[in-house]
């Protein structure tokens, strides 16, 4: 039995959050869509994947996106700290490739607090920092819908954990929460 709230809690401002799993990019896109103002997306230049603004357009206006291409993770963290502390950019997304230690995570956390901005680290699985406010595991979910995702809140410093099945409504640019499988209309009632 789950006591989780009906909707996934929004990411707290002034903190740094983490997301991992195969659906982390989709999670980040949905988070970007909920805010206004510019977004800074920091990624290392050697990575083979590129962001595709045409794929992000159903979530938010790609003109809001600034993209910093850095050489190393140290540069990425320094850039993120600078941007979080400044406060001109309300949301900073950092793609990390190596584990963050407590010191690095804490510095990001303090920078976000100083600038009253939100940071979101997209981390490889299991490489989070203990300083993170929340950590989400996001994975696409097989189903009839083509945007169904499962977001699991696996770490939360100030609240409960929970699991939500969500899908992104492309037309309305809105997140819909889908009831768990047993409670969906048309499904058989749970036995007992």
């Amino acid at each position: 039995m789950s006591f989780a709230p009906r909707f996934p809690p929004p990411l707290r401002k002034g903190r740094v959050h983490e997301a991992c799993g195969p659906g982390a990019a989709g999670f980040a896109a949905a988070v970007c869509a909920q805010g206004t103002g510019p977004i800074l997306w920091i990624r290392e230049s050697w990575r083979a994947e590129t962001l595709n603004p045409l794929g992000l357009a159903p979530f938010f206006d790609p003109h809001r996106l600034l993209w910093a291409s850095v050489a190393t993770q140290t540069d990425a963290l320094a850039t993120a700290e600078e941007a979080l502390k400044d406060g001109a950019i309300p949301l900073v997304v950092i793609e990390t490739t190596a584990a963050l230690d407590l010191r690095e995570g804490r510095r990001l956390q303090l920078a976000a607090k100083a600038g009253h901005t939100t940071g979101l680290c997209l981390i490889p699985e299991g490489m989070g920092s203990n300083a993170a406010e929340t950590r989400w595991y996001c994975a696409p979910l097989a189903g009839a819908d083509s945007t169904l995702m499962r977001w699991e809140l696996i770490k939360n410093k100030s609240g409960t954990l929970g699991t939500w099945d969500v899908r992104w409504d492309h037309a309305a640019r809105r997140l819909d929460v889908v009831p768990p499988v047993g409670e969906r209309p048309g499904s058989a009632p749970a036995p007992g």
């Binding site: 993209w67 910093a68 291409s69 850095v70 941007a83 400044d86």
Partner: peptide, 22 residues
């Protein structure tokens, strides 16, 4: 203005041409 100052400051570290937009 604040955003441009920030871009400049980040640019002194990673190179101004590495901050891009689509």
């Amino acid at each position: 203005d604040r955003l441009e100052d920030l871009i400049t400051r980040i640019g002194t570290r990673i190179g101004l041409e590495n901050i891009r937009r689509f």
